[in-house]
Design a protein around this nucleic acid. Structure first.
Lengths: 214, 214
DNA sequence: GTCTATAGGCTGATAGAC
DNA sequence: GTCTATCAGCCTATAGAC
């Protein structure tokens, strides 16, 4: 697959614009201008606007899996792996703010029709790893067993994704600018909050003894 | 303010279409057709497409506050109020699926520029009520004090909103259709999960005694 | 309040020279 | 691979009859 520089410029510009404005609001001319490339050239590399959009989406989504999977595959205790996953997710989004935006837009606009393959891959790797980690914690007795692993996994992801997307609203709600420090503080909060939920009611002493009712 | 039936039909059709397709992808002709109203009539009631959009957004958002505020204002214990809020939120979204969609679209497309007033109102009522409820639980000793109330409030909201928006992706992740029963199960999960996080490490016995280290 | 007709601009996409 | 020129269609919005 020859990686021509023009093709790459087009993909990058399209990614930025589609994420910022959405598919319909972004014009071919805008992409051409942003990519410093003649408009007609887009049709040399891509059949039409929609296929360009799909190429952008798939390129972006394929990177997500690889980066969030690593911490889940370590042999650390489940709680540590959970923290690692949440951190990896936050850092991936900070380094690539277009990812959550484009993903959400695809959900709203097309019901993930253009990303079914990538999500199935996600279901079989990162999401499965997350659920398995929770299940392992439950088997070990460090996580509550009355929580559905799949739901807990969704709760964990939801907090992070939502915070990145809702930044403008959160700015108004908190009445202050959302600095990088705030993002990182919220990332720690999500890890603490999620692990608190999973370990709630579990005796955390090294050698747990059954507690007696008074 | 005379509530003409045509005007109302236009607002309802616009709400459905803007929520489903977004502002740019929705045409004035589509709205006219869906509202069974002549296209030119839209310009009799609204100055232009954007002002129609703003009218839709504000009409929809104003309803949100009133419905989620009620459970927060009861004199029940904080944990009960939290559950009530989460339930109210879920039922509001189930009865009105366009609300979370349109709100998210506004965040993505315009950084909530068209809804700043409504969000400030939200910040002063529902969101403040939620934070105050958490703070009260912390003062009473039933909620952990090492959690920031504002962050916990966002976590709680995030889980619910995200689940409604991510339904197509969740369908693929879970490998099954998302029935009403699944939505309600997830709603209970969010309440359990959130309260587990808030009460984690807190002694839940009726008359808590300091626990002795072995 | 509701309709017809239409202006004027922009959009995605193509043909064809180089 | 890159460019110019261009088209056909759709879009928002308006003018004006009824």
């Amino acid at each position: 697959m020859p990686e021509s520089p023009s093709r790459e410029q087009i993909l990058e510009a399209a990614q930025r614009l589609f994420a910022a404005q959405g598919f319909s609001a972004t014009t071919i001319k805008q992409i051409g201008r942003a990519a410093r490339v003649n408009t007609a050239l887009l049709y040399y590399y891509f059949d039409d606007k929609e296929r360009l959009y799909r190429a952008v989406l798939q390129r972006l989504m394929s990177g997500l899996v690889s980066r969030t999977l690593v911490p889940l595959e370590s042999d650390a205790p489940p709680a540590v792996r959970m923290r690692g996953f949440i951190e990896a997710q936050v850092h991936t989004f900070m380094a690539n703010p277009e990812l959550p935006r484009l993903f959400m837009r695809e959900m709203l606009d097309h019901g993930v029709a253009h990303a079914v393959d990538q999500i199935q891959h996600l279901a079989a790797t990162s999401f499965k790893g997350l659920c398995d980690t929770i299940r392992e914690g439950q088997r070990q007795g460090t996580f509550r067993t009355d929580i559905q692993p799949e739901f807990a996994a969704i709760s964990s992801v939801a907090q992070v994704v939502y915070f990145f997307l809702a930044r403008p609203a959160v700015r108004v709600l908190l009445g202050k600018e959302i600095s990088t420090a705030t993002v990182e503080a919220f990332a720690r909060h999500v890890a603490d909050f999620t692990l608190a939920a999973l370990t709630s009611g579990i005796d955390v002493a090294p050698k747990p003894r059954p507690r007696r009712r008074s």
